[in-house]
Simulated scan of single mutants.
Amino acid sequence: MSRIQAAFRRARNEGRAAVVPYLTAGYPSPEAYLDTATQLLEFADLMEIGLPYSDPLGDGPTIQRSGEAALRAGVRTADVVALVAALRQRTDKPLLLMTYVNPVFAWGPARFFAAFAEAGLDGVILPDLPPDEDPEVVRAAHDAGLATVFLLAPTSTDARIREVVRHTTGFVYTVSVTGVTGARSEMPDLAPLVGRIRSQTELPVAIGFGVSGAETARQAARVADGVVVGSALIKKLASGEDPAPLLAEIRRAARVE
């Protein structure tokens, strides 16, 4: 059993959805990133690491600004590899990289995935890659020993779900809206979508793009195996606040009712 599978199973056995925080690598600084990630890992089941990128099509303004700040500070792909390696020294929990596909192509898929796998990464989330459009990239990730995660949305057809889960080996990332990332006050009813996904795969299903606090986490946990939170944590960091209490609140709220 992989670390990813074990993390979801452990959370399920504890009667709750798995908690997956997202932080942009190197934000607000490389040193602060490592300390913040370490603090959040106390309340996390898996950690999602965002690779700063200049054209993040799926990210809302909060995560965009964090990526821009990291890039201005000089954080590049090689630095993110080093941050993953440093974070792996601090935890045995699953670490996943969220990256757009252009940085993968810039290094070359085999080199990119091998470097991150050697650093201790467990999987890669590719939000802008339809996996059937470039199965060679998916194969390169698998050859490096990395799990792959792709996104599905409320607009996804049954045929699209079937195609995406065929290439997915980590968990299925379900976005709550047909839009960009960002904290929201209420979740739409995702039970029908999650039900359609579960009819085609036994992989865990995690919901993101909208979890902002206890109530939205509770809504997501009612129907999914995992709860992803990013923008709400980065907002705390941007205002100089400690995001760990918010993640602790989300973990408490992610009980399966």
Rank of each mutant, 00 (worst) to 15 (best):
S199V: 01
L193C: 02
A206G: 03
V172D: 03
G195E: 11
V177Q: 11
I197A: 02
S185G: 15
L193R: 00
S199Q: 13
S176A: 15
R198N: 10
E202Q: 13
T174C: 15
V194S: 01
P204E: 11
R196M: 05
T169E: 13
T201D: 11
P188R: 05
I207Y: 10
V177C: 12
R166E: 13
L203W: 05
D158M: 07
A191D: 11
E186V: 15
Y173N: 02
V165N: 04
S156Y: 07
A159N: 03
T201V: 10
S199W: 08
V177N: 08
L203V: 00
V165A: 05
P154W: 09
P192F: 01
F171M: 09
S199A: 14
T181R: 05
R196A: 09
V205T: 08
H167I: 10
R162K: 06
R196N: 06
V180K: 13
L193S: 01
T168L: 03
A191V: 08
L203D: 00
T201M: 06
T157Q: 02
A206C: 05
M187F: 12
A206W: 00
T157E: 07
L190T: 04
S199E: 14
G170Q: 04
V177M: 14
A183S: 15
T181S: 10
G170K: 03
A183F: 11
I197V: 13
G182H: 13
L203Q: 05
V175S: 14
I161N: 00
V164A: 07
T169P: 08
L190I: 08
I161D: 01
G195N: 08
Q200I: 03
T169W: 12
T201Y: 12
Q200H: 09
D189W: 10
G182C: 14
V180D: 03
V194Q: 00
A206F: 00
A206K: 01
V205P: 01
P192I: 00
H167W: 13
R198W: 06
V205K: 03
I197M: 03
V165D: 07
V164I: 14
V180A: 09
R198T: 04
P188A: 10
R166Q: 12
T181I: 04
T174Q: 14
Q200Y: 04
V164D: 11
G195P: 12
G182W: 10
R196K: 08
L203I: 00
F171W: 06
L203A: 07
I197P: 02
D189S: 07
A191L: 12
S156C: 12
T174Y: 14
G195C: 08
G182T: 11
